[in-house]
Nucleic acid binder design. Structure first.
Lengths: 202, 202
DNA sequence: CCATTTAGATGATGATCGTCATCATAAATT
DNA sequence: AATTTATGATGACGATCATCATCTAAATGG
């Protein structure tokens, strides 16, 4: 049942894409190759025609998940925010609005890798950690643009990213919806505050 | 080989304590009962004399890990900080100094549960999530005290906690030490900024 | 002091895991 | 057209997992 070169490449791509989704739904150790491959429409046997190991796939899927995150940040940044306190950058407010809402929190698959399996990434193999590091660099780079080369733009971008990931992670843990919403609000407020600091030169 | 009541209680306690450490080192799915019990100085067989399931132990160990976190926060809050920018609460600066240092980041076992297995907690069973939620409530309550009933004390305490967890999680992922240190610095700066806002009524 | 209960060791259970050998088949190459 | 190559299915491998049955010896309760 050999497939054409083009179709083989498409299959490989489909596995990575499927893994990227599955990881964000179930985490690294919660994702098995069996489940993964059948989700991609195949049996488990073909896996090693495309990858050397599960770890190699995880690294690639992590990178792919970061790409998706970047796209979401870009799309969010160019939207008009639900609410934008005076002095806050509209782009940052819109990004906070996108990632720190109950709807985004309750989504399983569209979630960002760092929220979905961030604590597992700290224990992952070198290649995966590297993919995550580079993804994080790019994400922070995007946020940095929102500060228009201002003073401490990079520092502030990192702070915003930490608030996004911290708030998102905690909100997903909490089993009390009101408390969880409070966390989202606090993180959103924090990000707007950082943005205001930048425009006011605080 | 039956043991006395007191010793049985001590054994059970030792298992929970061991699990609390193991969880913070290896995460939830990275911790097996085999490994756990032998770490506690026993074979795996005796486990079910003390617990109904692995999940039940995880929930208790999570609660215990939160207790340890609370103790660390309390101890940190009453220390004098390495550096304390003008207007920043010394307690908050000291807490940031404790949790956002390279030394704390590089420790395996003493780490806080939300950093160590926060993303796994979001997918854990109801009892574990509840234990985590209550632990988080208490941690935020402690931080809230640092704001002395000021305006939005609770909101700010949540923001500080999100910055701690977000910063700590990201710093542990990154494989570039300089970048990781940068993340710790940014999160620390953020927390000092929140503290200053409170004293200045910003 | 005897009968009962039980903590913890040993070892088996079935399920699931990552990985690999084999095979049929169809694309690629000659 | 003949030969080689490689995809993906089938199924097995050994390891590991949570859980449980059984056995022991010691603590408990009468």
């Amino acid at each position: 049942m050999r497939k054409s070169k083009a179709e083989t490449a498409r299959t490989r791509n489909r596995i990575v894409e499927t893994a990227s989704d599955a990881l964000r739904r179930n985490g690294i150790s919660g994702t098995s190759l069996h489940e993964l491959m059948s989700e991609a429409g195949m049996t488990h046997g073909g896996f090693y025609r495309h990858f050397d190991s599960k770890e190699q796939l995880i690294a690639e899927a992590c990178s792919r998940g970061c790409d998706a995150l970047l796209d979401t940040i870009r799309a969010a940044g160019s939207r008009s925010p639900d609410a934008c306190p005076a002095g806050t950058s509209p782009g940052l407010a819109a990004i906070a609005d996108t990632f720190l809402t109950p709807e985004y929190r309750d989504e399983d698959a569209a979630c960002c890798p760092f929220v979905s399996f961030g604590s597992e990434l700290a224990r992952a193999d070198a290649a995966t950690r590297h993919a995550a590091t580079e993804g994080m660099r790019r994400a922070i780079g995007l946020l940095e643009q929102e500060f228009h080369d201002g003073d401490m733009a990079r520092m502030r971008a990192i702070a915003v990213f930490a608030a996004l990931i911290g708030g998102g992670t905690l909100a997903r843990i909490v089993d009390d919806p009101a408390f969880s919403d409070e966390i989202l609000q606090a993180a959103k407020m924090l990000i707007c505050r950082i943005s205001r600091d930048a425009t006011e030169g605080g």
